[in-house]
Amino acid sequence: MARWAIAIHGGAGVDPNLPEHRQEEAKRVLARCLQVGVDALRSGAAALDVVEAVVRELESDPFFNSGRGSALTRLGTVEMEASIMDGRGRRCGAVSGVSTVKNPVSLARLVMDKSPHSYLAFDGAEQFARDQGLEVVDNSYFITEDNVGMLKLAKEANSILFDYRIPLSGSETCGAQAVSSDNSHGNGMVMNGLPISIYAPETVGCAVVDSSGHTAAATSTGGLMNKMTGRIGDSPLIGSGTYACGACAVSCTGEGEAIIRSTLARDVAAVMEYRGAGLQEAVDYCVKERLDEGFAGLIAVSSTGEVAYGFNCTGMFRGCATEDGFMEVGIWE
């Protein structure tokens, strides 16, 4: 019998000035969702079912940027995306551009289980949700007052700048430049072109190994505040935002474009597979060496029941638990 383990996250890149009561609320939501996973694992549920159930909980809670509470596009609409991967057989499913499906992660699972494909988007994904009889709601269900206000601020900040983070020549660390570049908001920290005080940590996710030693990961997000309609981030991309295999399961969060460029989730597994690294070692290596100038974080579990996380930004909403009784919920380093 292997030992089960679970890790969850609610996004990386947290405003250091986040009010105390919001921090407490975040921890409460994380603890509640973590407990859902722990209870399921204790009762012998399979990793794939656990990650879906936990991400559904995170989606349904308006606190984080997924499902209800998703960040808004430039047009003020919600376009959600999600993916799920079963380490056993590396099966996977993903969706993008979902606007009425209450739980995008469950649609991703149906794409995996019930379609000949592994990724459906926009109208085709919506149609498939209806064919499958998934619960759908009006787009307004996902839109919260908080986010309407945030979108206004984001527009005022004239954000989503041209991608200043990409070095035009040489390989200097542009992250440092980005942080010190001209912005008068908060403490100067910028993520995805947004001052950290406005940035909505992108994404929720869950990585699990069950007591049979099977791994699974799932990630879900509303994407980037003030994003162009049609924008796809890292969350639905297998190998970038989500990955699971025989070695480990990983879910990432942060600046999607940096995560895509580094195929971050797959690389944690690749470093374990090809370099023989342990889980935490692989996570540390990828956060340090694979993320170029971008800010991101990730959670991971190994098939042997370890948990690990890492991030290179201000903080990450996360929680983890293992079979031997370890449980932790945290935000900062």
């Binding site: 551009g97 041209f162 991608d163």
Partner: peptide, 10 residues
Amino acid sequence: TPHIYLAFDG
């Protein structure tokens, strides 16, 4: 664009 990936109507 500041993004990597755009799809469908967008």
